[in-house]
């Protein structure tokens, strides 16, 4: 006959009993192997759950989360946190899809009002960021370098070019969205192939002087967003996949 019910035993394992109650169970355990094995099972489950979730405590907190808690003050502008995000399938994922494809750019940055310009001649005429090859546009110079090297997971707030999402397109080529923060700013999509980073979409992102207190979080220009949606297969790369893709030469 076992006078100790399940609730009491559970409370014992969870440290909910007072000293007297605990002592009573301790004494019973010494006498009753079955009871002892039940206690051991319950403790093992607790330990397994901790082993499953405690490692989260040691993970670096994603910048997009800690950034939300940074004080919004003009003296301490928000660091750039364009993050690479997997667009998941449902629920939270749908939200992610919505929130992830944004540009988070420091200071007075690029806000959303977007006029899509086919390609602004003034932009690539004078700069060496775009070259034309076989009638197609390709990234050149600093843009090509940023697409080759920069990781959205390790943003450089001082870089003139910020990388957003990276993903593998349905045709197998890796594509990356980017924004060029000069004035007026441009955003676009670059896809890697044998000839370099081709630029199927370039779009002007009109720079507006927004509230300096606020991070400028603008949606991707609609044309770029549409180009991403048309090409993406599966999910955008996470930080690890992005790095692996870079190490593999974006093939």
């Amino acid at each position: 006959m076992n006078p100790i019910d399940d609730d009491t035993l559970q409370a014992y394992v969870d440290g909910e009993l007072d000293a007297e109650g605990s002592a009573r169970i301790d004494a019973a355990l010494a006498q009753d192997e079955l009871l002892a094995s039940r206690v051991q099972q319950a403790r093992a489950l607790r330990a397994q759950l901790r082993a499953l979730f405690d490692p989260v405590l040691d993970e670096p907190v994603p910048a997009r989360l800690s950034a939300l808690l940074r004080p919004a003050s003009p003296q301490a502008p928000m660091a750039a946190t364009p993050f690479v995000a997997a667009s998941a399938r449902r629920g939270f994922g749908a939200r992610r899809r919505h929130t992830s494809r944004r540009w988070l750019v420091p200071g007075a940055a690029v806000a959303a009002s977007i006029a899509v310009l086919a390609v602004a001649l003034w932009w690539h005429a004078g700069s060496a960021l775009v070259r034309t090859h076989d009638g197609r546009q390709f990234a050149a110079g600093a843009l090509s370098h940023a697409l080759d090297q920069a990781l959205a997971s390790e943003p450089d707030p001082h870089a003139s070019i910020a990388i957003g999402l990276s993903f593998r397109g349905a045709d197998g080529h890796i594509c990356r969205t980017f924004i060029e923060r000069s004035r007026p700013a441009l955003a676009g999509l670059a896809c890697h192939d044998a000839a370099g980073w081709s630029l199927p979409v370039l779009s002007a992102a009109e720079k507006t002087e927004r509230d300096e207190l606020q991070q400028a979080a603008s949606d991707l220009p609609a044309a770029v967003q549409a180009a991403v949606d048309a090409r993406i297969r599966g999910e955008a790369f996470d930080a690890r996949q992005e790095r692996a893709a870079r190490d593999a030469g974006w093939r």
Binding site: A88, R96, D238
Partner: peptide, 24 residues
Amino acid sequence: LPRLRRLARALAGQATDADDLVQM
């Protein structure tokens, strides 16, 4: 934040879902 992420992971399961939950 680390504890909040741990709780979110235990509730939501997947890491990406959990961090979306934390953001919310």
